[in-house]
Nucleic acid binder design. Structure first.
Length: 269
DNA sequence: ACACTGACCTGCGAGC
DNA sequence: TGCTCGCAGGTCAGTG
């Protein structure tokens, strides 16, 4: 599911719904959803309140009273707020019973997502080795140049590396390169300074638009509360058959272990 | 150090 | 209908 805009959407919706609610009880139904001992996890969170809601890259950051709860949704993780009377299905792995009477439920069909308790108010600057946020001034053409020094990997693969800039995933990498007129398979060593500046500018433009649209919905993804992102309506290449700029057939190429969509005409090289 | 692969999981649609 | 295969928005460990 989620890249930066989707995670941002989840953060905002959850803040509206459960801010300052107390956790009465935590049930971990699939132990591997939690890093560390699930019993300790559940015990420590009992009595804590959801005080702040943030994001770093694709990580959700919940500020509790005495600790920080970090959650990564990976491919398919999502949070739902449901009435306890609603039946639990087999994909709900963690249940937080809340003081307001509802439950916060973590749902993850592929079981890739993880959550973890870490110290209160962590230093997020070098959290998980993440690069700057896309809207941080540290994300520049110059940074891309330095980062790619001595490397020849495809620019598409490089954009997916969270150490360069945090939050870009497969969909937005394709969309950013489409907006720049750069083929995903182009070596990062063969970018011009103008290309790098274009990448920075379009990263911000596209992510900002996507956040405004509430994220992207592909296949069955909906964020918490059934909020459905609409950005897929704006995708120029990813998941498309025909280029929405020129009408040419979209190509799909396997790059760095991911499928990459591009228009061979608009993305000349 | 870099680049690539497999592993982690389940479900869905395509093709036979 | 029922099977197998390939694929899915992410990240990390392991291999040359």
């Amino acid at each position: 599911m989620p890249e930066l805009p989707e995670v941002e959407t989840v953060v905002r919706t959850l803040e509206q719904q459960i801010r300052d609610e107390e956790i009465l009880k935590v049930t971990v139904r699939w132990p591997k959803a939690v890093i560390g001992d699930p019993d300790v996890f559940a015990e420590r969170l009992q009595g804590q309140h959801f005080r702040s809601f943030g994001r770093r890259g694709k990580y959700l950051i919940f500020g509790m009273d005495d600790m920080t709860l970090v959650s990564h949704l990976r491919m398919e993780g999502k949070y739902y707020i449901q009435d306890p009377s609603e039946p639990l299905n087999r994909h709900i792995h963690v249940v937080f019973q809340l003081s307001g009477g509802k439950e916060l439920r973590y749902h993850d069909t592929r079981k890739f997502g993880r959550m973890e308790i870490i110290e209160k108010d962590p230093d997020l600057s070098d959290f998980h080795d993440l690069g700057p946020e896309p809207f941080d001034e540290a994300y520049t053409a110059e940074r891309i140049r330095e980062y790619c020094r001595g490397r020849r990997a495809a620019i598409k693969s490089v954009l997916l590396e969270q150490q360069l800039v945090a939050g870009i995933g497969n969909i937005y990498a394709d969309e950013i390169l489409s907006a720049c007129g750069i083929r995903p398979g182009r070596s990062c060593a063969r970018l011009t300074q103008r290309d790098r500046q274009n990448i920075v500018d379009n990263t911000r433009l596209i992510l900002a638009e996507a956040i405004k649209a509430g994220g992207t919905t592909i296949r069955s993804y909906t964020s918490s509360l059934g909020v459905t992102g609409m950005f897929q309506n704006d995708c120029m290449v990813h998941g498309q058959k025909i280029c929405r700029r020129c009408g040419h057939e979209i190509k799909v190429k396997w790059i760095g272990g991911r499928s990459s969509y591009y228009c061979p005409v608009c993305q000349a090289k």
